[in-house]
Amino acid sequence: MNCLKRLSASVLLLGFGIWTYGQNVEFHQNDLLGTLASKPVSIMLKNGNTFEGVLDSFKDTGFSISQSVGAEGLAVMTFVWEDIDEVGFEGDGLWEEIDVSFEKKEWKECIRIMRVLYEQRAPFFPILSETEIFQFEKLVTCYIEIQDPTAAMGLIRQLESWVKTPEYLLKIREHGLKVFLLSGMHEELVKLSRTMIYESPHITISSFPWVALGFQHLKRKRYREAWLCAIHPLLFDQGGDSAHISDAFMIAQIATLKMKEVSIALKYYDDMVEASVYPISKPYQTEWHDWWTSVDWRSLRENTDEIEKYGDIESDLAHSTDTREEDVPVIRFPVLQN
């Protein structure tokens, strides 16, 4: 396993964005051009000795750094991972810049900076803390925001092989679902959603798998299934991420409108307004958000016949069918044995 991790790290150096879903490997030559990657790193060994040098090479057992000696000389020192206590990098101050750009939604600028940091640090993932590695979760967000699912998925694959903390892993998997939504990978989305739902102790941990399934069903015109999935966060996710709740409201409204259940759709709309959560457009649900914003709720309330504008003529065909567990998983609420 360790060996695998390290190999992943070596792949990373060649360029992230590697995606194992039959897609072409994306090679970002520019990634190697960051200046930080060529700056020396400081190494503190467990025995207290310290060294400084530029990364020369690395493999699954350790790495080498080089140091200039004299005018043209070069000393190369090799270390094994187990001997390393700490590694120090330049450029920590860049995280503040990243935070500012992230706040301003300057995704490309964030990517530009973070990629340099990533290249500098990725080889050292075997000895970095999960918190340090998880910082690059922001980079995944940026890729999703610029709708680059390939790069996002490549990075997700790398991060999830290093991160084991449940909260971090959950966040990374949520990103995975967004990427599947972006790229229309139905089978993978259903599989990951179900895994997340069934592995999670309860829905309040994350209701996003339900939301993702809901969007996926909308896409496949399985409105009843979309509606039923959306209901789960609305019923059980108290105090969870309001973005997920607003998306769940939006899915429930769209599904019921498509099914021409006008009074139910209006009820969800009213509940949403009462809860003061409003959906905002996100790359993985833009088309649905656009559709939702086109609904004239006031007019629909005054004249419910307008439902014909929004309804799908085949919507109620699904009414008479059984709901499959794979389409709408069974929520596992926690029950303690007293």
Binding site: W227, L228, I231, H232, L234, L235, I264, E325, V330, I331, R332, F333, V335
Partner: peptide, 13 residues
């Protein structure tokens, strides 16, 4: 629909 979700979860738990 909400009732369906709740009772199904109980029935299959």
């Amino acid at each position: 629909a909400e009732a369906w979700v709740i009772f199904r979860s109980l029935a299959l738990r």
